[in-house]
Amino acid sequence: MKVTLRIFRFNPETDSKPYYKDYEIEADPKDRVIDVLHYIKNEIDGTLTFRRSCLHGICGSDGMRINGKNMLACSILLQDLGYSDANKTYKKPLVIEPLPGMPIIKDLVTDFTDFWKKYETVKPYLITKSQPPERERLQSPEDAELIMEASKCILCACCTTSCPSTWSNEDYLGPAALLKAYRFIFDSRDEATDERLDIIDTPNGIWRCHTIFHCVQACPKEINITWHISQLKKKLVEREI
């Protein structure tokens, strides 16, 4: 089948403004978007720049905006985007843009500096005050299950950059950092709950979440981030009352 890719291009060294470039290519419905991008880079235009690494949705490098929505280019097949007929020429272009609301370095590559700073803000590490036992700390399967979904996060920034609250205020911690906060607040082994709750209980923190569900829809690991954030909100309210 023939598909047109409309790709966001911007090279800071030569372009004053970003623009979109169309590439018409031959593709298979079972191709991943990243395969198509690789094809363009390898065969047509080597200047196309994007990040990628593992190619199966666990490293979190290739988050981008595909047909208006954030996703991992390696975890979506063309047929899932509606390009499913191998004999057709598709008129509707496949629009590929960098993650929204982030500074752009080049083409589809965005600047993650702030994203990592937010991640670090929520103290993403286990804090324990008591002496650890000789063997492993005990944790019931139920308690382990509580943080299983949250520990799936691959830090691809698809969620944080899809959140309208981040668009209106880039200092908002964002779903990814809040999910990481959940991961430790609800870890039965962690002993710094209060300290952590203080960090997220700020105007730029959890209260900018308006349950818009953009994060849930964007998450390539299908984590229900909003549910985790609602647990945090309840915990904060419980602490106040």
């Binding site: 911007f10 500074p103 600047d111 668009w167 308006h210 829809q217 909003t226």
Partner: peptide, 26 residues
């Protein structure tokens, strides 16, 4: 130095593909 080429807030809200949650919020 990285160049910022932000889309505006309202343009993003309008152009981002919305599902139930997004529409409900608006």
């Amino acid at each position: 130095k990285v160049e910022k080429t932000h889309e505006g807030y309202f343009k993003l809200v309008a152009s981002y593909r919305k599902e139930t949650g997004g529409w409900a919020w608006i």
